[in-house]
Design a protein around this nucleic acid. Structure first.
Length: 763
DNA sequence: ACCGTATTCAGCGCG
DNA sequence: TGAATACGGT
């Protein structure tokens, strides 16, 4: 057994070694939080704890995957794989597959994703003849979700005077009713939405003491990652599970709590000690990620928050560069300046695109950055856009699988009953829905026995319905007989989906077809991997499609294997950047009403969350941070005047480098003007987006920017550079402002410099 | 059933 | 501004 503990610093070691009793680890940004979690699990295993007795809960699939991989490296695969490690949702979904019958759910229950929920709630609003402007589907869903998070059932909701009154005052008195209908419809379809997975788990533990006891005994050691992001129901489930052994360890950073808007309750971490009087608290305060400047600047920001656990983050790393402040006239210019700066850093320090990230508050801000990067021919990738499992073609095929597994799954049925088109249109579907509602039966029961009900549908259509039913039934009959991949492929082709997509020869159609192929590959991989593992156990049965589907419903980020290109600048929202790190970070749009967001101005709690968000953004950076703001910005179609964000002022002055007025403005009025004229031609590039990496012809640079000095440079000349000192030009390539020189600097070596930025002095 | 046009909406988004 | 959806006409 390898002595893993020697890899830890003093604070980390203490947190890892305290395996018994309740403990809380407050882990500052970049302080080795994941390290503590993984080493703690590994340490438990080394002490001889049975992996089946360990439960590790994370928020994202990515986090649990990474943790698992790292534990495998530390202690080997067999033990690590048996630890119950996963997201709250996936772990509880698994428990509900086993125990859900107590609540009236079969083990093959469906999981509705947000699109399913939204479609269903829309339909209900319409059926109830309510105005979907007053009852905006998203608003209604948010109310329902908030209720579930706080363990308020539909009945409780309708009987709660305060809630009902609040809805009444908001002019939406029917929300309780909508919630009620929605819950019934989900139940009738044997379906749970994401919130139900938590809500029902809590009910299960609340109402079935034997079940709770069983899992309390099983999970002798519990770890929770990102504890600052837990909501009430998650808090309660964890508390109940840990009630017996109290071997619970929560890890988090109150300063990085940024998901209040979706129900996360920062008080869970702030008040954790109230639940466990003999709690041991550990603080990881040494930052290994960032320069002193970045760490101190971030500290100076977060100091403005009242609600926090005291800690002093420090680092041994070097001082580093000051934070560069970029001031732009418009959002367009901001993009240009950021792109130019990336280009400049790249050339001056020979960096890869991977070293850079641009972070913004809202997705809408990405466009200006994208345009500017395209013009400089810098490849980039936008994170957080349409993920694999949200694509239409994938959802269509998955809907077939869902319906085959659970015939009552109404959202799946509605999605595919006429896809590919088979002449069962909206009118017919409406008749079925009305009848199902009248008879209080599932849609499937109606179409399965269509002759029994007076549907008022012509015989032609009835026979089409019957063909469809027979087809689905024949698939269902093979569910347990065929292996996952064979059945998946059969359904893909026999449903007509493959043919439908194959016939679409547009680039989009082609890519859809490829996506289906990729899904089928994933299923193949799954069934092969799983059979290998099962050989070790006694079970020699085949891997079936429903086993694959159990995992899939909760996946969002298909590991986008980048076949195409791996070196790109990352563009994402600050929220999406949490947990990541980059050498060079650009935080854009630091303006009042944008960052901090306009919605946060009225409450201290919201403002503090915005500040934590900025803190998260800053602490993503290892080497250098640039922050930028624009004085004017197009928002919702019109130009608005912006003030610099209060957050800029909150950074102590000594950490900031103010904009150099001279070089920026003259150049950039020009750039901006040029951009506007260029706009039309850039429209041609439409349609290429999503996760694809985009590179474009360099259409921007020409001789406009070459200055006379650049022209004078010749091979062999002796020059001086601001940073690298004296050197000799070895060669010159390119023209205009794309002109690059390879220079040999004394004591440093060969560097390639873009002359537009390098500002070489001829000696 | 399908297509083009009108209208609306715009905060971050795990599972 | 522009994307997504609703609507209305054929």
């Amino acid at each position: 057994m390898k002595d893993i503990l020697k890899d830890l610093n003093q604070a980390q070691l203490k947190a890892v070694e305290q395996t018994e009793g309740p403990s809380m680890v407050i882990a500052g940004a970049g302080s080795g939080k994941t390290r503590v979690l993984t080493y703690r699990v590994a340490h438990l295993l080394n002490l001889g704890v049975d992996p089946f007795n360990i439960l590790a809960l994370t928020f994202t699939n990515k986090a649990s995957r990474e943790m698992k991989e790292r534990i495998i490296k530390l202690v080997g695969g067999t033990d690590a794989r048996n630890v119950w490690m996963g997201t709250f949702h996936s772990i509880f979904a698994r428990i509900l597959r086993i125990e859900g019958f107590r609540l009236g759910y079969p083990s093959n229950y469906s999981i509705y994703d947000t699109d399913d929920s939204k479609r269903l709630i829309k339909a209900i609003i319409k059926e109830q003849n309510l105005d979907n402007k007053i009852y905006a589907p998203n608003y209604v869903l948010n109310r329902i979700s908030a209720a579930k998070i706080n363990l308020i059932s539909a009945n409780k909701y309708k009987n709660d005077f305060e809630i009902m009154n609040a809805d009444k005052m908001a002019g939406k008195p029917k929300i309780g009713e909508l919630y009620s209908i929605y819950a019934k419809r989900c139940k009738k379809a044997d379906a749970m939405d994401f919130d139900d997975l938590l809500f029902n788990t809590n009910i299960l533990f609340r109402d079935f003491a034997d079940v709770l006891y069983k899992y309390q005994q099983k999970f002798k050691y519990i770890l929770v990652d990102e504890y600052q992001d837990t909501n009430y129901v998650q808090y309660l489930i964890v508390k109940n599970l840990a009630a017996n052994n109290e071997n619970i360890c929560v890890v988090g950073d109150d300063a990085q709590s940024i998901y209040g808007f979706r129900g996360a309750n920062i008080q869970n971490i702030l008040n954790f000690k109230n639940d466990y009087p003999d709690l041991k608290t550990f603080k990881l305060e040494q930052n290994y990620r960032s320069t002193k400047t970045i760490v101190n600047a971030a500290n100076s920001i977060i100091r403005n928050n009242k609600d926090q656990i005291f800690k002093e983050i420090w680092t041994n790393n070097s001082e580093g560069n000051k934070i560069q402040l970029i001031k732009a006239i418009t959002d367009g210019e901001e993009g240009t300046l950021v792109a130019n700066s990336i280009f400049e850093q790249k050339m001056n320090f020979q960096l890869q695109n991977n070293a850079f990230a641009v972070l913004y508050r809202t997705n809408a801000q990405s466009r200006a950055i994208e345009e500017a990067l395209r013009k400089l021919n810098i490849p980039y990738r936008i994170f957080g856009s349409l993920s694999f499992y949200k694509r239409k073609e994938i959802k269509d095929l998955l809907a077939y699988y869902r319906l085959v597994i659970n015939n009552k799954d109404e959202e799946a049925l509605i999605r595919i009953i006429n896809y590919p088109a088979r002449g069962i249109g909206k009118t017919t579907l409406d008749k079925i829905i009305v009848t199902a509602d009248k008879e209080n039966k599932s849609l499937w029961e109606i179409i399965e026995n269509s002759s029994k009900y007076n549907l008022n549908i012509n015989t032609g259509t009835l026979s089409k319905i019957s063909t469809f039913v027979i087809k689905i039934k024949s698939f269902s009959a093979q569910l347990k007989k065929k292996n996952a991949f064979d059945l998946a492929k059969l359904i893909a082709s026999s449903s007509g989906i493959l043919k439908d997509l194959y016939e679409d020869k547009t680039p989009e159609g082609l890519s859809r077809y490829e996506n289906i192929e990729e899904l089928l590959n994933a299923i193949k991989e799954f069934s092969e991997k799983d059979t290998n593992e099962e050989e070790l156990t006694e079970n020699n049965s085949i891997t079936t499609l429903d086993e694959f589907m159990q995992d899939v419903a909760l996946l969002t980020d298909a590991d986008t294997k980048d076949k195409e290109l791996t070196d790109y600048v990352s563009l994402m929202t600050v929220h999406a950047s949490k947990g990541l790190e980059f050498p060079y970070v650009y935080i854009v749009g630091l303006e009042e009403n944008l960052f901090p967001s306009i919605q946060s101005l009225n409450s201290r709690a919201d403002m503090e969350e915005e500040r934590r968000l900025f803190y998260v953004a800053l602490t993503r950076a290892e080497q250098r941070v640039s922050i930028s703001y624009a004085e004017n910005r197009y928002r919702w179609g019109n130009l608005t005047i912006c003030e610099p964000s209060r957050f800029i002022e909150e950074i102590e002055n000594k950490y900031i480098e103010l904009p150099k007025k001279t070089s920026i403005h003259t150049n950039n009025f020009k750039n901006d003007y040029f951009n506007k004229n260029k706009k039309q031609s850039s429209l041609n590039f439409k349609g290429k987006k999503l996760n694809k990496i985009t590179t474009f012809e360099n259409s921007f640079f020409n001789n406009d920017f070459s200055d006379q000095l650049t022209d004078k440079l010749q091979t062999g000349m002796k020059v001086e550079h601001q940073r690298f000192g004296k050197g000799k030009i070895i060669s010159i390539e390119g023209t205009g402002s794309n002109k690059k020189a390879t220079v040999f600097f004394n004591g440093i070596g060969q560097k390639q410099l873009l002359l537009k930025f390098a500002k070489l002095k001829i000696l």
